[in-house]
Design a binder for these strands. Structure first.
Length: 556
RNA sequence: UGCCGAAUGGUGUAAUGGUAGCACGACUGACUCUGAAUCAGUUAGUCUAGGUUCGAAUCCUAGUUCGGCAGCCA
């Protein structure tokens, strides 16, 4: 895959040392998503780190579903996650579920109880919270903290048998209610939840908490380096406590890296789910979503996502990456891979008054000038063509090289045309532009008589194929205050739908095929809404442009 | 006023006691049948104050700022 060496970082340094010192013989990592939503670009970083680092050291990586909370999890998410990881280009060694380990986890809990390291607490959730203390004050011991081993064993077994209702009892670790690390103040290990689990059905009514389950999962699978994001940093002592006190034969270690934050991007699974549930977007794969499936449908390539996250590196410093960097990577990838085509997004009819009526020419055009091997395609040219509305202005601003009355431009791959007339409707809107063309200026004829500053794209009216073109902007407003809740930052213009035209050269385009609409951007054939009768194109990313119209842009 | 962690151009990231570099962005210019791409260039940085050292982004001390942590979520 991506074989260029990555620079060193604290994780790779640790692994190198562990290998050299013989502490581990083979690197084993895992990517442990909870199947409670779809993966997003932030997960792509974690996936890249876990799979990529292991791969560099000829190690193994498991895909493990951290499914310890039946209330939020669903097999729909399991399938989506598997598809996304595979699409990104990673192959897992083992495919596991935390729920496969429930029996072993239960037995280890019994061990903890027998050692006097865990107890059943009858306090309510509220009481537990109230007695946990605060950031500056220690907590208080539970009145049930000193139950006998026998009593704890009996109670815990009855919890499992379903003798108690949700929330009536929990199993807690007995550590230190005065610890400055809140995670060590007798954390809950098991809670009661009479819920159907996507994998184990109704076999269990007690479920282990993440802090207890995760280290055991790692230990069971022989994970050597458990790589997670920074918010778990404070749990490290508890992680080590669980592995040690449960007397796991294999001892994994946890290392934390900074998660990815992207500018103007919702990276909260919870909020993304809300957008989906409230139908504010067209599902998890809405092209505006930062989900892997959304990016895929939008038209991003796995290669571009990989090279993007690779460039981020592995650090612990927090920050926010400009989404322009992601755009750069996809442009760079698609520039060499995407066929060029002329498509008109907002059409304006241009009539060539001195071109013979009824005449149609077939022109050969390069599919990708950057990559001659991609060959040639054919397009049609006739007396009437559609051009882009923004390529004509009746009153041009400074440095406007496109069409305006009296100005001559090239119709790309065809002829020079000079604007002679403007047709307007009753409201004064420009509805048609009239030009004359010069037959001597045909593309490829070698004409050098004069030059024009502008070249514009077009589609021949007689064979133009209507297409729906969807233009996207970030879901969050560019200049909104980051402190504001997402609801107040949503960009009302994140989706704009246009009815445009494509040429016959891409009439057979298939879902997920990507093109560069010349002078405009890269587009993907939408796989969901495209029908045999009508193609839908998603804007992946626009082309950069160094031309900015100065002052108010009142079209036409 | 608890614990943990982090601070290098606008953004991300290198430099592991020895010339502060790379990428993105922005801005110039060249080229151009894509105002793209490409090429050339410009811009701009070690949080602060002390200390150690021939020499500090790097080590030490203090401070400042930012982030994470008080789910029976993960």
């Amino acid at each position: 895959m991506d074989t260029t060496p990555s620079s060193s970082d604290f994780i790779r340094e640790t692994i190198t040392e562990d290998l050299q010192a013989g502490r581990v013989s083979q690197v084993v990592t895992r990517f442990p998503p909870e199947p409670n939503g779809y993966l997003h670009i932030g997960h792509a970083k974690s996936i890249y780190i876990n799979f990529g680092v292991a791969d560099e050291y000829s190690g193994k990586t498991n895909l493990r579903f951290d499914d310890t909370n039946p209330l939020k999890e669903d097999s729909e998410y399991v399938n989506a996650i598997k598809e996304d990881v595979a699409w990104l280009g990673f192959e897992w060694d083992g495919l596991f579920f935390a729920s496969d380990y429930f029996e072993e986890m239960y037995n280890r809990a019994l061990l903890l109880i027998n050692k006097g390291k865990a107890y059943v607490d009858d306090q309510s959730a509220d009481q537990v919270r109230e007695t946990r203390g605060t950031l500056t004050e220690p907590g208080q011991n539970s009145p049930y903290r000193d139950r006998t081993v026998e009593e704890n064993l009996n109670l815990f077994e009855r919890m499992r048998r379903g003798e108690f209702g949700d929330g009536q009892k929990v199993l807690r670790a007995k550590i230190d209610m005065a610890s400055p690390n809140l995670n060590m103040r007798d954390p809950v290990l098991y809670r009661i939840s009479h819920a159907v689990h996507h994998n184990t059905g109704d076999k269990w009514c007690i479920y282990p908490m993440y802090a207890y389950a995760h280290p055991l999962e790692d230990a069971i699978e022989g994970v050597t380096h458990s790589l997670c994001t920074l918010e778990f940093k404070d749990q490290r002592p508890l992680y080590d406590w669980v592995v040690r006190e449960c007397e796991m034969p294999h001892v994994p270690h946890q290392y934390e890296f900074g998660r990815l934050n992207l500018s103007n991007t919702v990276m909260s699974k919870r909020y993304l789910k809300k957008l989906v549930d409230e139908k504010l977007v067209d599902g998890w794969d809405d092209p505006r979503m930062p989900t892997i499936s959304g990016l895929r449908r939008r038209g991003f390539t796995p290669e571009s996502i990989r090279s993007f996250v690779k460039e981020l590196g592995i650090t612990v410093a927090g920050g926010e990456v400009d989404y322009k960097l992601l755009e750069h990577h996809v442009r760079q990838d698609l520039n060499l891979r995407a066929p060029r085509t002329m498509a008109v997004i907002r059409p304006l009819k241009l009539v060539i008054t001195n071109y013979p009526e009824g005449q149609v020419e077939t022109l050969d055009v390069k599919i990708n000038p950057e990559v001659p091997e991609m060959g040639m395609a054919q397009v049609r040219f006739s007396r009437e063509v559609y051009i882009e509305q923004e390529d004509f202005m009746e009153v041009p601003p400074p440095k406007y090289h496109r069409l305006y009355p009296g100005n001559e431009v090239r119709l790309k791959d065809a002829y020079f045309v000079k604007c002679t007339d403007v047709i307007k409707d009753a409201d004064g809107n420009v509805v048609e532009v009239h030009c004359t063309y010069d037959p001597e200026t045909k593309s490829g004829s070698g004409f050098t008589g004069r030059k024009v500053k502008g070249t514009i794209h077009w589609v021949s009216c007689e064979s133009a194929i209507p297409a729906e073109i969807r233009l996207y902007e970030p879901m969050l407003q560019e200049d909104a205050d980051n402190a504001l809740p997402f609801d107040e930052r949503m960009n009302p213009d994140s989706l704009k739908v246009e009815q445009g035209y494509i040429g016959i050269d891409i009439k057979d385009a298939q879902p997920q095929e990507k093109f560069q609409f010349v002078r405009q951007g890269f587009f993907n054939v939408d796989p969901k809404d495209t029908t045999p009768d009508k193609k839908v194109f998603n804007l992946i990313v626009s082309l950069k442009s160094s031309f900015k119209i100065e002052q108010p842009n009142t079209k036409g």
